[in-house]
């Protein structure tokens, strides 16, 4: 059975087909949720909401392009929705964008595994974390991030810079 048939069955509500899609996606998407939410309990909520949303929106998957990429966007959007709802992004606007910080230089982080990385990222303040995720991993531009989060482009840039600085600091600490 092809992926498209499987998706079609899942769309019709076949629980087993849905379960297979869930199994194929859940671990990766849980990592995405963790990366945005910063803690397991919120990440679980997002994972759950994300899958409900995914299964109810299967109609809108055109069949072209990557299913996983399509799914990932649903989870990112769900995470952003949660973040917006809990107002954690608002606080990030308070960080004065004009405030100058020293631009960090990338460290060669040797053998940092993704688990370490996830942990370090989840320890970032929510605003920084969100911008960092959207820019670095999802590949959005500052302009898009600004629109997505309702902040200014300058804020987005400055938050990314700060996120990088904190991350580098943490990586340095980790290596000591």
């Amino acid at each position: 059975m092809h992926l498209s048939e499987r998706i079609e069955k899942a769309r019709q509500g076949d629980r087993r087909a849905q379960r297979l899609l869930y199994d194929a996606l859940s671990d990766k998407m849980f990592a995405v949720c963790l990366r945005y939410m910063g803690n397991r309990s919120d990440a679980e909520d997002v994972l759950q909401d994300g899958f409900v949303s995914l299964f109810t929106k299967l109609d809108s998957y055109s069949g072209d392009g990557s299913f996983e990429g399509w799914a990932r966007r649903i989870f990112v959007n769900t995470a952003l929705m949660h973040l917006r709802k809990s107002d954690v992004l608002k606080g990030s606007e308070d960080v004065d964008a004009a405030f100058d910080i020293e631009a960090p230089t990338p460290q060669a982080d040797g053998d940092l595994g993704y688990k370490e990385l996830l942990r370090l990222i989840s320890e970032l303040p929510p605003g920084f974390r969100t911008v960092f995720n959207l820019y670095v991993v999802e590949g959005l531009s500052h302009k898009e991030i600004a629109e997505e989060l309702g902040i200014s482009e300058v804020t987005s840039r400055s938050q990314l810079l700060r996120a990088r600085a904190i991350l580098q600091e943490k990586i340095k600490d980790l290596k000591k």
């Binding site: 990592a31 996830l118 991993v137």
Partner: peptide, 17 residues
């Protein structure tokens, strides 16, 4: 970073399903 994170998978709890 991206390539490490994009492939990251963390075992999702069963209760979620």
């Amino acid at each position: 970073l991206r390539s490490a994170l994009e492939d990251a998978g963390v075992k999702a709890p069963r209760r979620v399903w």
